[in-house]
Write a protein that binds this DNA or RNA. Sequence first.
DNA 1: ATGGTGGTGCGACCA
Length: 276
Amino acid sequence: MKIASFNINGIKARAEALKDWLKEAEPDVAILQEIKSIDENFPRELFEDMGYTVETHGQKSFNGVALLSKLPLEDVTRGLPGGEGMGREGADDIEARYIEATVIGAKDSLRICGLYLPNGNPVDLQSDGTPVPGSKYDFKLKWFDRLTARAKELLAAEEPFLMAGDYNLIPQPEDAKRPEAWKDDALFRLESRAKYRTLTSLGLTDALRVRNTAPETYTFWDYQAGAFDRNDGIRIDHFLLSPQAADHLVDCQIDAYTRAKAKPSDHVPIWVELDI
DNA sequence: ATGGTGGTGCGACCA
């Protein structure tokens, strides 16, 4: 089973590029982030015509995630638990950043968690150095805590699952061309990395680092200043596998070539092949 | 270099 994750930066601008890549890569499941669309405006028929079932969790203008699957999907849920009162201005967590579904494979079922973790910038700190309550950085760290809580729940079942998507997190200095430039950024600050480490330390496997040890391997390059031409990138899109999923890991790769095409997303797809 | 580019959607806001 081939499962891909791709932050497309707007379905309206990227529909044709997404179709082209799906035809080339032929994933069984595609996990999308930043669809930037309400559910009603997502061009689902473009992908249904290619044999995909389409499940969206969108909102107006920003964020939004989706699942495309050629294999049967069951038990689709939208939203990450624990968001009550987590929105800005004390509102509920209305940011559409998380979707889960069970994919029925030839040998086994796999729970797929698709996520778009908050960016977290700007980093607003109080005089004691802790994040300002209700700030974007505070929201990011608390979102990490909720994701970790969900991972604990799923791990207890001892079944195959994965959490994949745009984590907006650079795990290690080697995951950035210029790590010093990201030192104080919400994507690389020590508190952010500690949250990521807490999550992976539950027993989740970073699929890319198991299958690909090549240096300067990134999933995002800024649109500005010719970042891609200089390979001035960061690795922030990740596949984290449960032990039962990692047992079936065959391959994990990044389709960086899509970044060189016309009108690219600033992210590129990452995918895993699981014998499942 | 405190957004230089790009998306959404039509005024800002987000990354």
